[in-house]
């Protein structure tokens, strides 16, 4: 009898241990939301940001309950709860501000097709010849500074969440969201070739 108890307890313990194995995956949905918010801020499209704040989403009760129940079952729920892509940091704030301040100077060149974002979410030149000669090195400098900030921001978001290895996922998410939110006529480079939205 005692042995049965011990065995059962051991099995249970093993089961529990197995259950709490932490398996942190990249939280795509949260990253998309954060990317959207940051991209809107950088591009100066505050509408969506403001509306998000003004009308906090109220999850229906049943959905909340379902979520709560689901979180009991999902073993890594605890680990996931640490993840917050909107986690503030002064560096992140400063980078977002600096990106937003520089964007209006770059926008005409997104519009003209001289520059575009690639699938690692940095800005590339598509055609320098679309930039007047006298502005060309200024735009080269702006692109270089903007990319420095974007790269620092991706790294900061990954670092803030304690997952520096997510850098590539974060880049991909930002690239996807940038492309999805791009104005009609903007160019982007995907898989090595330029495409126009």
């Amino acid at each position: 009898m005692n042995r049965v108890m011990i065995t059962t307890t051991a099995l249970l313990a093993a089961f529990v241990a197995a259950c709490v194995t932490i398996n942190v995956y990249f939280p795509e949905a949260a990253a998309v939301e954060a990317a959207d918010r940051i991209i809107d801020k950088v591009r100066g499209d505050t509408d969506s940001g403001a509306s998000l704040e003004a009308t906090p989403r109220q999850a229906p009760v049943m959905l909340a309950l379902a979520k709560g129940f689901a979180s009991l079952l999902v073993s890594d729920a605890n680990a996931q709860s640490q993840i917050d892509f909107d986690k503030p940091s002064p560096e992140k704030q400063a980078l977002e501000n600096s990106l937003a301040a520089r964007f209006p100077s770059l926008k005409p060149y997104f519009d003209s097709g001289a520059i575009g974002v690639n699938d690692t979410s940095v800005i590339e030149f598509r055609d320098r010849n679309l930039v007047p000669l006298k502005d060309r090195n200024t735009v080269v400098q702006l692109v270089s500074a903007q990319n420095n900030d974007w790269n620092a921001l991706y790294a900061e978001i990954a670092k803030l969440n304690g997952h520096p290895e997510w850098l590539d996922n974060i880049r991909r998410t930002f690239a996807e969201r940038w492309i999805a939110k791009a104005d009609k006529g903007w160019w982007y480079r995907e898989g090595g070739s330029w495409k126009q939205k």
């Binding site: 320098r128 000669l133 006298k134 060309r136 090195n137 080269v140 400098q141």
Partner: peptide, 11 residues
Amino acid sequence: GEAYLEPVYAN
């Protein structure tokens, strides 16, 4: 005229 030899510009 003007010339550009990346990253140098001259007018």
